[in-house]
């Protein structure tokens, strides 16, 4: 690591703030999970708006309660959830680049809409990668600022990479249409999987017509949805690899959408997998919120994903 310096000090850690880059790849065969931002979409925009390239490490702030002070002049962007962020007690605009002067206190209060906010500082946070990534996975004790998978602690000193010259000085605010409205009921796109025909007709009708409630049992591993019981002729499979967004249905008939910190293999039948952007959207849902599922095709999903990546690429 070169020329990194303390840029930010943690005055109050809050319940859950994690360092996340794009995730840990090439190690899934060792049982190591993916990690990375649960809401990839907002994470990518926070980095783009801060002037960082794809993959820079940001903070994923869940629920709020985090207080940070700048130890030198910085710039940042917050995208994703509105957690009532203030800078020296003045509201911070989201989805745009903001100047952060030395000594100013950035505070995340509590959720106004959405659940996870992404804080990208210009240059990106700096930490020693573990298996090619700084993505923090608490369960595996990997990544984060200490390499041991610790969430942010009060008193932590966070290092920041020096920012290169900005090649995007004019537009530092996300255009309209980029910013999701987290108050709308999400309709999550699901790519059907191999076991979809093993579900009863009634269950398939219910899967795509019922309103599914986000359960309290929701974290970075997976989000349990409650609603009508889904019956599958196959009750369990021989364990096999599980991709991001997979919606598995255990014998209790209540689906679980698997997110970034999921187990790498598992043996429950699956309805299919959420598209990457729908998994991102689900990660912003609070327990009790309702979502709907709709089946989609890989053509539409690919077009949507590539358009998102192209827009980010053009921005930086």
């Amino acid at each position: 690591m070169t020329d990194t310096a303390i840029g930010v000090r943690v005055l109050r850690a809050g319940p859950l703030a994690l360092l996340q880059d794009a995730g840990r790849f090439g190690v899934r065969h060792l049982g190591v999970t993916q990690g990375g931002p649960a809401d990839l979409y907002s994470w990518a925009w926070a980095n783009a708006l801060a002037g960082n390239r794809w993959g820079a490490a940001s903070l994923e702030v869940t629920v709020g309660g985090l207080e940070l002070v700048a130890e030198k002049d910085l710039a940042f962007a917050i995208a994703g959830a509105d957690l009532g962020a203030t800078l020296d007690q003045r509201p911070v605009p989201l989805w745009e680049r903001v100047v952060w002067k030395e000594g100013q206190v950035l505070r995340f209060a509590s959720p106004v809409s959405g659940l996870r906010a992404y804080l990208s500082v210009r240059g990106g946070f700096a930490a020693e990668p573990v298996m090619g990534s700084v993505a923090c996975v608490m369960r595996e004790q990997l990544g984060g600022f200490d390499g041991l998978g610790s969430k942010l602690q009060t008193g932590d000193q966070l290092t920041v990479h020096p920012a290169g010259p900005s090649n995007n000085t004019a537009t530092q605010q996300a255009p309209s249409g980029v910013r999701p409205d987290f108050s709308l009921e999400p309709v999550l796109s699901l790519l059907p999987g191999a076991q979809i025909a093993e579900f009863s007709g009634q269950s398939l009708y219910d899967a795509f017509n019922a309103r599914w409630k986000v359960d309290e049992r929701a974290d970075r591993m997976g989000v349990r949805l409650t609603g009508p019981r889904l019956d599958c002729r196959v009750r369990s499979l021989i364990s096999e690899g599980i991709n991001l967004g997979s919606v598995q249905v255990p014998p209790d008939g209540q689906p679980i959408a698997l997110l970034n910190d999921r187990q790498t293999i598992g043996g429950y039948p699956r309805l299919g997998a959420l598209t990457p952007l729908s998994a991102s959207r689900l990660a912003q849902c609070k327990p009790g919120q309702e979502v709907r599922l709709k089946a989609t095709g890989s053509g539409a999903a690919l077009q949507e994903y590539r358009a998102f990546r192209a827009r980010i690429e053009d921005w930086v």
């Binding site: 065969h29 364990s239 096999e240 991709n243 890989s298 994903y305």
Partner: peptide
Amino acid sequence: LVDIVPSYTTLLITFDPLSLSPA
């Protein structure tokens, strides 16, 4: 190629969707 997850009877292959379409 992003990851290969071998298991008892299967391989899960994940790839970069910017380089390759599912088809």
